[in-house]
Simulated assay, not measured.
Amino acid sequence: MEALLAPLALLVERLAGYPQPLFRAIGHPVTWMGALIDRLDRRLNRGAGRRARGVLALVLLLAATALVTVPLAWLCRLIPFGWVLEAGLASSLLAQSSLRRTVADVAAGLRRSLPDGRSAVSHIVGRDPEALDRAGVARAAIESLAESSSDGIVAPLFWLVVGGLPGIALYKAVNTADSMIGHKTERYLAFGWASARFDDLLNLVPARLTALLVAMAALFVRGGRPTVAWSTALRDAPRHDSPNAGWPEAAFAGALGFRLGGPRSYGGEIVDLPAFGDGRADLGPDDIEHALRLYRRMLDLVLAITAVAAVLAWQLG
């Protein structure tokens, strides 16, 4: 029955999300991880040997995560139907519902006004919102949707399948560390090196798997271009500085006939990033909603694949 962990976790998170009353009462596992990372940053990110200190911070983070989740998973395997509890706990580390809502909020905000669109997109991207025009806001939302489809859903699900509750929790710990300290700034270039490199390693397979899933999902979207999605990912993804981030973005661009990526402004500095796809760059709220339809079909496909795999594993077992 442990084969049902992945589809059940997906289903629970899709239907229930992470309840707001629970968040207000105890917070969220990612916020707990973030608090520990922040404390390690303040205590260790100083003086000489910052790269070694960053390695130590990552080891302590992973040890703390394993110390909590390994016994929890062990207990779940001991009690009747404990796999249901394990799937429920794992569902808190998936982001299907929250990602859909935040991206849909950008489309709704952009329909009202450009300032509302900028305000909504500022919650999901790190670039300067005031530097974005209407098309820039739409592209930023779709790019965030594409990238988060990988590191917010496919990657944690992949590591759930590989390692159960500890697997998904350890992945989220590394991914959270990368988002907090894995920056190429003077403060974090050395200290965040280990977190950034380990996050790259953990996402190597999931990022490419996401691109393939997006291409397959394009079969079920009006105007979708599955073969172009995959060929665009193969062609354009290697242009990105990150070994992984370009794969889902390029696949979304190819599938929808968009051009994503390009120069972005961070903290008043223009960062010249590669473009993905050969389509339209003048995008709007309708295009965000079109991308969300592709995203939903991808989620349906992931649920179907994991459910079929679970049934096959159950029959063979």
Rank of each mutant, 00 (worst) to 15 (best):
I270G: 00
E130Y: 00
T69I: 08
V271F: 11
V12Y: 01
T69A: 13
S179I: 10
W314L: 15
S119L: 14
E269Q: 14
A3P: 05
A281R: 14
H183L: 12
A155K: 08
A25L: 15
M180I: 10
L78T: 05
A35S: 12
A90G: 13
P226L: 08
H290P: 00
L99P: 07
L204D: 03
T102K: 12
L72A: 15
M180E: 06
R24M: 09
L58F: 09
A64K: 04
A140R: 03
F198Y: 08
R208P: 05
L62G: 05
W247M: 03
A304F: 09
L273K: 15
S119D: 13
A217H: 08
M33I: 15
V162K: 00
I288C: 10
A218Q: 07
D41V: 05
N244R: 05
H290M: 01
G54P: 02
G167M: 08
S97Y: 02
L62W: 04
N45Q: 05
M216C: 12
R297W: 11
V106A: 09
F23H: 06
I142V: 15
P156N: 06
G167V: 07
V103Y: 07
T176C: 04
I305K: 01
A25G: 11
M298G: 01
R24I: 00
L11Q: 01
R77Q: 14
G267H: 06
H290D: 10
D286Q: 11
M1V: 12
